[in-house]
Design a protein around this nucleic acid. Structure first.
Lengths: 170, 170
DNA sequence: GTCGTTACGTCAGCAACGTTGACATATTAA
DNA sequence: TTAATATGTCAACGTTGCTGACGTAACGAC
């Protein structure tokens, strides 16, 4: 290949990457728009949704584990967790083995809100999946996983393995 | 299919969606982590990066157009645009036809910073693309596009059409 | 049983980035 | 001349991150 050809390939590649950047920006923004609207009415934000999501998915999770997943400080978590507890969305119980721990669980009210938020987002994702086809969805998963650092990737893969064990996912 | 089968399918589907939610959350977070670190050293944030990106990609863009793309208020834009202009990253010139407009362009300094940020993010995306393969990348694009509202989708598709015209993309 | 470490909470202050509302200026267009 | 448009700016506020510091309760080792 001559120099012009190589430069042209590089250019193609750059356009490809910039397209990816914009897909992520616009896609993520619209993906979060639905829940954001519901949360705003309850004087909550995206951070509350994250807590509801991860507590819902990991009932009995400790504060430390939640901090590790979210990668925020305990002060930041405190600010969203406190209203969630006071509002009756989340409860905490002392750990059986280690009573310093606060095991977090969603109340019925918390589950109901989480579900409402989930369903809004499900509509967005379902549409995208349906329009794209199963093969595209598999590609989407691979690319998003590749975008992650080792940390998050391991967490996702661990979750997938657990799902397979329990027969949730083929 | 019996009722149990249908419920199981629904459950599968829910796990699928929740996986998608987490892929987006973790993926987007790690996708933005690189530039964020560079920007922090310059006392800038993600919002500055967005301006640099879109001004770089659309030289001579007006303030209104930029506001429409970012979907933020002019006050919010002002807060990041002003330091960028004062720092010599962006210049504005009055529009030829309409002198009320401020046509925004990156300076050399702005281009250099934008490129530095781009390259960091390119590494992340390149790795994800390389690990996943061309077919997966195509799937990723379709799904992300499907996630967007009509607005953003039209914008992306218009950009793609323009690239094809100018021979940038096959 | 004392003592260091760990798990968690909280107070104070700060920064980035989004919002609304109001008002000012320059320019265009009717 | 006048109304509308493009842009800028002041003020005040909310969400969600951050650092630093301090306090309490419980675990674990000696």
């Amino acid at each position: 290949m001559d120099a012009r050809g190589a430069a042209s390939l590089l250019f193609l590649r750059e356009e490809e990457i910039r397209l990816g950047m914009e897909l992520l920006f616009f896609g993520y923004r619209d993906f979060t728009a639905g829940p954001d609207a519901i949360l705003a009415e309850l004087d909550m934000g995206r951070a509350h949704h994250r807590v509801l999501h991860f507590v819902g998915r990991h009932p009995g999770i400790t504060v430390s584990e939640l901090l590790a997943i979210l990668r925020i400080t305990k002060q930041s978590l405190g600010r969203v967790l406190k209203p969630l507890v006071e509002g009756g969305y989340v409860v905490h119980a002392p750990g059986r083995n280690d009573r310093r721990q606060r095991l977090l669980t969603l109340t019925q009210k918390g589950q109901a809100l989480e579900r409402r938020l989930f369903e809004r987002q499900r509509d967005t994702i379902s549409r995208a999946y349906r329009e794209s086809g199963a093969q595209a969805v598999e590609g989407f998963r691979r690319v998003m996983l590749g975008m992650m650092g080792a940390d998050a990737r391991a967490r996702i893969e661990a979750g997938q393995a657990k799902d397979r064990e329990s027969g949730k996912v083929a």
